[in-house]
Design a protein around this nucleic acid. Sequence first.
DNA 1: GGGTGTTATGTAAACCTTTACATAGATCGT
DNA 2: ACGATCTATGTAAAGGTTTACATAACACCC
Lengths: 343, 343
Amino acid sequence: MSNSTPATIEDVARIAEVSIATVSRAIHTPEKVANSTRLKVNQAIAITGYTTNAMARSLRLGRSNMILVVAPDIGDPNFSNILVGLENEARSHGYGVLIGHTQNDPQRGLEYLKFLNSNQAAGLILFTGILPFGHQAMTARLPPSVGVFEPVFNGGIPYVGVDDIEGARKAVDLLIAEGHRKIAFVGDCRTRLAYSRRRMGYEAGMDAAGIGTDLRIVLEGDGTIESGRLAVEQLFMRDTLPSAFMCVNDQTAIGVMIGLGARGYDVPRDFSVTGFDDVPQAVFTSPALTTIRQPRTLIGKHAMALLLELLSDGRPAETEILLRPDLVVRNSVSAPSRAWTKR
Amino acid sequence: MSNSTPATIEDVARIAEVSIATVSRAIHTPEKVANSTRLKVNQAIAITGYTTNAMARSLRLGRSNMILVVAPDIGDPNFSNILVGLENEARSHGYGVLIGHTQNDPQRGLEYLKFLNSNQAAGLILFTGILPFGHQAMTARLPPSVGVFEPVFNGGIPYVGVDDIEGARKAVDLLIAEGHRKIAFVGDCRTRLAYSRRRMGYEAGMDAAGIGTDLRIVLEGDGTIESGRLAVEQLFMRDTLPSAFMCVNDQTAIGVMIGLGARGYDVPRDFSVTGFDDVPQAVFTSPALTTIRQPRTLIGKHAMALLLELLSDGRPAETEILLRPDLVVRNSVSAPSRAWTKR
DNA sequence: GGGTGTTATGTAAACCTTTACATAGATCGT
DNA sequence: ACGATCTATGTAAAGGTTTACATAACACCC
């Protein structure tokens, strides 16, 4: 029963007493084969335990059934949930998911390009927000691709993600509703499209409330904890303090809370803080972080569905699918402290 | 330069004015080809931008250059760091890493078995602690495999992980050194080998200190936050309270701290708590969790190295590689409270 | 100078599948 | 009843690679 070498289509054909072509047809286009024959083939498959050799199939078809997922950092708390969505959707369509991380190393990017060139992946999901492959000359050979988590700015590939503008808007609106007027934005960053959009949402909210943007309390940042801590330091140096910090992501918010804690302030009594992403840790910070949730599994699902569509249709359907962000209220926001309302 | 169809070995051969066999040899066994020829071939490769078609290669060789990694849950905070180690090591040897998650669904397991049978992966890394493929009959066709994170109990495959016994021992020893005598063990679980070992370390430590094990404060658990919370409830019901909780993992410890917090107790003033794993969240709990660190990236690296060795040698080298766990002291442990020292 | 090695290269088969084309048998319309 | 059409199946080529075997060139030794 369990030979050392796996059964081939020929073994099945021999047992079913048909040709290998018929076996192949019985599997892939069953309507083209007589009922009686199909039955014999299915029995033979059951007997041999035959599984199509994916290598041979891919070789013949000129494309594989693997999707390459390239992320800058597998450990990113946002990553795994999106991946689950991607993986489920892919597998239910007979595709496998392959994972690579670039660690922001361009050399790594080239390796993946080679990988794609050698036909090992039929499609590409990009978390990096940038085509990680040096010269655009290569672009010609890129398989169908979909950006996720971060829009890809140097190549017109479709994107699936959360509506950053709307999400940011929800955060500012909450702070404004609580009575805040001086709201800092931490994590301004021109190169990251998602962050730019969040800032746009921030500005829209401030404008809508008739407050407008005070550039002295818009701080640069790269989304790391450290950048949040640094921003707090800068503000205390400049002595232009807000009553609330709207942060471009949860990591930054954690950094801000650490910075404020280090200076002896209490969140939310002295300052309110919001994040963005709702990473798992956001529940465990103290206080638990009020933030904007990304529907990560859903993003993964949609992104993969779009990619698979591209793979069969050829032409790009939508260029951008934006999902609805949800406000998650926890304990890091309250009304501004007395000290601030007086100003 | 960038044709629509990728260059094949024949294109290279034509340009280099040699046969395809020579090209293949120039790539894989360069010492068997004359210097002058090798030069010509390399130039031709550079001109064409040739990359070996991995499908054809795998088909011919009867094995792929992919390693399948099967985890119960990609989102597990322990997972990503081990994966980084696995991935780096694999890639530096020309292998790619493929990720699957079973979500503890046996159906899923079967899909992966099919996947392996169809030659799409040369080796298997198992996070699940169990061969996820129904009947052991199949075992015959399993490719070289290595267990990681959790020893595989139903198949004699090599294992790479942390020394759970020693790690647990470090945790008890710390608690004992702080003066604790009544130390609960939370997360007893017969089916999970790693947890059993941690309990063994716990018992060894208690015995060495002449305290011994009090079964009334050894509680079952499955490593979830909820199981930790529940354990606290049980102890308060039974009214047999320890002064410290040694938890089988960080999640459990978080649950314990939540449970204690809910009853109005302060950690570490009223009770000390230790975890195991040092997941990223452990820094952000309040108080920050004292725990045992698993060298995750290193585990991944060693596991993959072992697997690749198996792949080339054939025979299993070591059956178990245990790495050193490190004690990470944070703020969840202190001397027992007055109330307890008096007992 | 002819047998013996050695070295470098070429020829062709094999890996397993899918599918265009060919074939043969059945069905149908008149 | 006969050509036309349709349906089910088979034959064989193709996809790109690796490698056993064959060949050819060359050096070497007695």
